[in-house]
C-alpha cells in the first residue's frame, strides 16, 4: 500500500479550507494540516515538512513560497510547483479554479493528480456556493427594499398591502424598470421629502 501523503493547505478562507480538507479525507489516508495565516509560512513548512503544499491563488505569499522552494535552503527537501507539461488541461483547470500546488521532488505525479483534482473540484464547488449565497443575499435585500417601499405607499396613499404592491408592479411595468428599482426610488423620495 502506498504511504500516506502529508498535505499542507494554505488558505485564508477557513470555510473553503474545511471543504478541501473534507474532500481530501475522502480521497485517501492523507495527513492534512491547515494553515490560515500567511505569516510564518516558512517556519510552518519547515516544521510540518509536507509532501504537498496547496495554496490559493489570492494568497500574496505565493511569490515568497516559490522563492523559498527555489533556494530550498529553508526546506529540508526540494519542492517545486506542480506542473505536468504533458497535461496542460489540468494546469489550466487549477489556475482557473484558483489553486496552485507545490510538491516535494520525487513524489510521483500519479499520486498528486487525484489530490489536485479533488482540490480543483472543491475550489469550484466553493465558488458556486459563494455565488449562490451572494444571489440569495441580494434577493433577500431586494425583498426588504420592496417591503419598505410598499409600507410607504400604503401609508401615503391609504392603500391595502395588495393594492400598494399592485401599484408598484404596474409602475415598474409602465416604466420598463425592475420592481426593486422603483422601490428604491420611492424610498429615496420619501427620505428627501421627510
Amino acid at each position: 500500500m502506498a504511504s500516506s501523503i502529508k498535505i499542507l493547505i494554505v488558505d485564508a478562507n477557513p470555510v473553503r479550507a474545511a471543504i478541501i480538507q473534507e474532500g481530501l479525507r475522502e480521497a485517501g489516508p492523507h495527513e492534512i494540516v491547515l494553515l490560515a495565516g500567511t505569516n510564518g509560512l516558512v517556519a510552518a513548512i519547515e516544521r510540518h515538512d509536507p509532501d504537498v503544499v496547496v495554496i490559493d491563488l489570492e494568497n500574496p505569499s505565493r511569490d515568497a513560497l516559490a522563492d523559498m522552494f527555489l533556494v530550498s535552503r529553508h526546506v529540508k527537501r526540494p519542492i517545486t510547483m506542480f506542473v505536468d507539461q504533458s497535461d496542460e488541461a489540468s494546469i489550466e483547470e487549477a489556475v482557473e479554479a484558483g489553486v496552485s500546488a507545490y510538491i516535494v521532488d520525487g513524489l510521483k505525479k500519479e499520486r498528486l493528480k487525484p489530490i489536485l483534482q479533488t482540490c480543483i473540484s472543491r475550489f469550484n464547488a466553493f465558488s458556486r456556493l459563494q455565488q449562490e449565497l451572494d444571489e440569495a443575499r441580494s434577493q433577500l435585500d431586494d425583498r426588504k427594499t420592496i417591503d419598505r417601499a410598499k409600507g410607504i405607499v400604503m401609508r401615503l396613499k391609504s392603500l391595502t398591502e395588495e393594492e400598494a404592491y399592485a401599484l408598484l408592479r404596474k409602475t415598474a411595468m409602465n416604466e420598463k424598470r425592475k420592481l426593486v428599482d422603483i422601490a428604491r426610488s420611492i424610498i429615496t423620495a420619501a427620505e428627501v421629502l421627510k
Binding site: 494568497n59 500574496p60 505569499s61 505565493r62 511569490d63 510547483m81 496542460e88 494546469i91 489556475v95 496552485s100
Partner: peptide, 15 residues
C-alpha cells in the same frame, strides 16, 4: 493581481 506567479500562470493559461 496579488503575485507575479499569478500573472505568469494566468497569462500561461490565457486567463
Amino acid at each position: 493581481e496579488v503575485s507575479w506567479s499569478n500573472l505568469r500562470d494566468k497569462l500561461n493559461v490565457r486567463l
